[in-house]
Design a protein around this nucleic acid. Structure first.
Length: 592
RNA sequence: GGCUCCGUAGCUCAGGGGAUAGAGCAACUGCCUUCUAAGCAGUCGGUCAUUGGUUCGAUUCCAAUCGGAGUCGCCA
């Protein structure tokens, strides 16, 4: 990595010229801004006091010394307090030769013993997936790929929330109003069918509440007393008792939902190594709570509920077990975390979960810490913001959600319309064309969501967000398709990077420098757990390539060495774009 | 009220101690008989919420204030 080499050489130079030892952190090296000439820039200001000289003098002295003594530095200029260093063509060419043919450029492999577990998606089985889940799924999937590109062994897991009162609501509504409707009889996707009854439950329930209120009952009381709620709670009790009919109904309806989810995941291109079901795990954790009680890490109140006191850590007292002895969310998560730790002994346990649960994960980590587990800090909550609609939040009960399946279909339809308008693929077979619409439609959706910093809330405008020009997925895919087109027209290329060129055009050099950055970008994305880092990089690389493509001839270049170099540079860029998009779970088309 | 996150162009978002703060969209103007115009080039658009502080240097770090979101003992 040239930055490290330069930092080291600058350090040595200052030592040699001024007999001063500087820390690597004091050496502020950055990419030279576009409007100046040079490749990397050293900020001189921090040394002015130390070296008791003017910024210009230091810059010139240091620059001259580096030019003489560092093989990588071929030139320099000083502007105000900035020393702009020019890196030798030899360095750029050797980088090019070393990596231009590498199909896994930017990715590192290692045989690390400890895996990383990434939990994401984690849906409820009472309604279909929506836009919020899409952000979760895309982040989790992309992060998994980013981590694996950094040599981690990643285990992607899903924890399905398949039990509880909300599941019983759909079941009850189906039982009462469903007339035996099935996905087959209705033609509805299983998750949508179940979701329909969840909404129906809520509608009927609200009517019952209104009735009771009109009879003079208080709101809260009415919510508890409404017959539907009473029945749902009874159903939950029956489920926990293992009542055959209830469990059978639960199995049937969940089965419908799983079929629906499987279809959605497949369309979205999402996968897991392992799926856990809360119905199997919800009792885990009680034992841990018991253990904590015995060790006096937790305490019990008079009503038998179990608590932990986290006031010393600046948090509150937190409930770990209800007074009736049943487990809460925290109890269960404690259990599943322990289970996962024992199963995989991971170096990190990543949870891709919305930011409304930040407090929950803070507490979870501390509880595990208090239990004396050394791995408490390997829990990492990738917290992401909500997806908002122009008119506010999504509410599944109020029907203001953007359904995942519908959204993807719309993306495919838009991709189809746009592609047809442009009329470039009239020779495509039907199947080929459909595949392209999916690639582009999903590309647009995935890029749109992943380019935003996960921690920020984002706005999704169904009318405007579906763009295919500018800073979008299809723009990057288009750049790739252009590259493939040139390479096809060039025919089979000799696989030598030897190029015989003696210089680099500015456009060529800019592209090459961007390519050089990619491995660092992959590392940064993993370090920050942030796919947006990759998205922004891919966009910039595509921009730079398009400028090169526009300004510089490739196929018609007469000098065979230059022509070959440009072809190789294009191929290299294409491969890097493909790799970057892969990290985001996006495909690339050969033509579009 | 306590805690956490956010506030950058009309809109959606990058940047994150260093040089004149960047993209896309929207509006307007050029460029296809030449490698894909889903492109390229340009015009227009900014008190980086406000006020203090730290620093040679702050949009960036710290504090306060104002706005927005989330969350805070028996929902998951």
């Amino acid at each position: 990595m040239i930055e490290h080499i330069l930092t080291q050489k600058i350090k040595e130079s200052i030592q040699a010229i001024y007999s001063l030892d500087v820390l690597p952190e004091q050496i502020q090296l950055q990419k030279t801004r576009k409007e100046f000439s040079g490749d990397f820039t050293l900020v001189i200001f921090p040394f002015v006091k130390l070296l008791k000289s003017s910024p210009e003098a230091i810059g010139n002295t240091l620059g001259e010394y580096l030019k003489q003594n560092a093989a990588e530095v071929s030139g320099f200029n000083v502007i105000k307090g900035f020393l702009n260093l020019e890196i030798s063509l030899d360095y750029w060419f050797s980088f090019f030769t070393a990596h231009a043919q590498n199909e896994t450029f930017g990715f590192t492999r290692s045989d690390e013993a400890k895996p990383v577990v990434v939990e994401y998606s984690s849906p409820n089985t009472n309604k279909p997936l929506h836009l919020g889940h899409i952000r979760n799924n895309l982040l989790g999937f992309s992060l998994s790929r980013i981590l694996s590109a950094n040599g981690k062994k990643v285990i992607r897991v899903n924890l399905v929330n398949d039990r509880g009162i909300h599941i019983c609501k759909s079941m009850l509504a189906w039982q009462k109003f469903g007339n035996g409707e099935t996905p087959q009889s209705s033609g509805l996707k299983g998750d949508h069918l179940v979701g329909k009854y969840y909404v129906l439950f809520d509608k009927e329930y609200k009517m019952q509440i209104a009735d009771l209120e009109s009879q003079g009952m208080k709101r809260e009381e009415a919510e508890r007393q409404a017959p539907l709620m009473q029945e749902a709670q009874e159903m939950l009790r029956q489920w926990e008792l293992g009542d055959q009919a209830t469990v059978d109904l639960w199995r049937t309806m969940n089965g419908w939902v799983y079929e629906g989810f499987a279809a959605t995941y497949q369309t979205l291109g999402i996968e897991f190594e392992k799926t856990y079901y809360e119905s199997n795990t919800y009792l885990l954790g009680k034992q841990l709570v018991e253990q904590g009680l015995q060790n006096h890490v937790f305490y019990q109140r008079d009503d038998k509920s179990v608590w932990i006191n986290l006031t010393e850590e600046g948090l509150d007292e937190k409930l770990l077990l209800r007074s009736d002895g049943t487990s809460v969310y925290m109890t269960q998560d404690l259990g599943t975390a322990m289970q996962r730790y024992q199963e995989f002994h991971p170096e990190q346990l990543v949870y891709v979960v919305g930011n409304e649960q930040e407090y929950h994960f803070q507490v979870l980590k501390l509880v595990i810490k208090h239990l004396g587990e050394s791995w408490w800090n390997s829990i990492y909550h990738l917290s992401y913001g909500m997806v908002e609609l122009p008119h506010g939040k999504m509410k599944s009960r109020e029907g203001t959600v953007v359904d995942a399946d519908d959204l993807m279909e719309e993306m495919f339809a838009t991709a189809k319309d746009r592609t047809r308008e442009l009329g470039k693929i009239q020779d495509f077979e039907n199947e080929e064309a459909e595949k392209l619409y999916r690639t582009i439609g999903l590309g647009a959706l995935k890029y749109f969501i992943l380019k935003v910093d996960p921690k920020k809330n984002m706005l999704f405008n169904p009318e405007e967000s579906v763009d295919f020009n500018g800073n979008t997925g299809p723009f990057i895919q288009y750049t790739y398709a252009r590259i493939r087109s040139v390479l096809r027209k060039a025919g089979e290329q000799p696989n030598t990077a030897a190029n015989g060129t003696t210089g680099l055009l500015p456009q060529e050099k800019t592209v090459l420098k961007f390519l050089h950055d990619f491995p660092q970008v992959v590392q940064d994305a993993a370090h920050e757990h942030n796919p947006a880092v990759v998205a922004n990089y891919a966009y910039e690389l595509a921009c730079e390539f398009n400028r090169f493509y526009h300004d510089v001839v490739i196929l018609k270049e007469e000098n065979p060495g230059k022509r070959n170099f440009r072809l190789q540079l294009s191929r290299f860029t294409g491969q890097t774009l493909k790799n970057a998009l892969w990290l985001m779970g996006m495909d690339v088309p050969e033509r579009m």
